[in-house]
Design a protein around this nucleic acid. Structure first.
Lengths: 195, 195
DNA sequence: TAAGGTTCCTAACGTTCGTTAGCAAGCCTG
DNA sequence: CAGGCTTGCTAACGAACGTTAGGAACCTTA
């Protein structure tokens, strides 16, 4: 546990404020003047720290992509675990990353379309690769008779959909800690509703 | 089956094109000049048919809200059905509305935040009311021992999340007809993945 | 004390934005 | 054929946009 968080660099403060604004207002509807005012600056001053508005979005999106991949790699590195168990770990890791920075997650999930090329194409390729990781886990789980689904690709999409809706309702100050949320989500998605 | 669709009024054409642009570009990032060009018009000409850009978004969002409520009402009117069965019908209705106009659905789900007040607040109230409808079905299903979940509110959110992700990947020209998608989604969400 | 980096300012640039005004051609209805 | 509705144009409005230039404080390090 850290006693006090180290003071954020000015650049990090800008990233953080931009993330919050991009989340609530959307990237296109957030002006640099709004962002500057939220930081107590004039608009032009921002450009002593950043190169462009686009750079802000790029950093937010790709930093989170890194986090998701790192978490997935850690969740699936234990080769002696069953695919179903690895899937549970991957789900919990995904939820963990989402809850660690809900604002950045929301931007990651909804504002990537405003990335300019070639970043946008690169981003989509990363997302596709991440989804494939989940799909392979589900397929292996089916082969090992631990999971059951008529269509692994279909199941993957709905599973990630359920997880990715979380930033729209999750409040960090809520009663349920992220670990509980992760566990409950994994349980429900793996077990369904039916008796 | 209709032999030929009636020609769309100019206003309806504008709505349709605006929906497609709002979906792919986002509301804020779509200019009236872009919209006009997609229709083969000059920007000023649009205002012979509509009052404002905001009006376009308003009509798209609230028309779809009407469709969702109408479908839900039809799905749950048979009082002799169990809650679990009504839930299945409601899921299938939801998927049906989504697939009938994927572009409008995507706008409905992602661009409502750009509604100006008081429309935005009104919209959120409608969405809340809709979610309550689903939550009550799940709760009744649990009471009737047809469904099982530790937290009905939680289950409702993940269920709608799975459904609402559909417009991001559904292609109308795909092989799977909407009725199959609806059935499969309902099956998976009610049964889960586990053997 | 000198040098260099960090931080922020004012002022302005060219562009694009949503929207309006005024006008005109074509159409259906009487 | 007259009236009005639909449809579309050109031209322009004030405002807001992202970004840049040039300068001035301040802090740290040599």
């Amino acid at each position: 546990m850290e006693a006090t968080a180290p003071p954020l660099s000015r650049k990090a403060q800008i990233d953080q404020t931009a993330t919050a604004l991009f989340r609530t207002r959307g990237f296109a509807a957030t002006s640099m003047r709004e962002l500057a005012e939220a930081l107590g600056l004039e608009a032009g001053s921002l450009y002593s720290h950043i190169k462009s508005k686009q750079e802000l979005l790029h950093r937010i999106c790709f930093r989170l992509a890194d986090d998701f991949f790192a978490g997935f790699a850690a969740a699936t590195q234990a080769a002696d675990e069953s695919a179903a168990t690895q899937l549970r770990y991957a789900i919990e890791s995904h939820v963990w990353v989402l809850t660690q920075d809900v604002a950045a997650s929301a931007v990651f999930l909804h504002e990537w379309r405003h990335l300019s090329e070639p970043a946008r194409t690169e981003f989509l390729a990363l997302r596709e690769r991440y989804e494939v990781g989940f799909r392979l886990l589900i397929q292996r789980g089916v082969e090992q008779n631990d999971l059951r689904t008529p269509d692994a690709a279909f199941a993957t999409l709905t599973l990630l959909a359920s997880l990715n809706w979380l930033p729209t309702w999750y409040k960090p100050e809520g009663k349920m800690p992220p670990s509980d949320i992760a566990h409950r989500l994994a349980e429900q998605l793996l077990s369904g509703l039916r008796v």
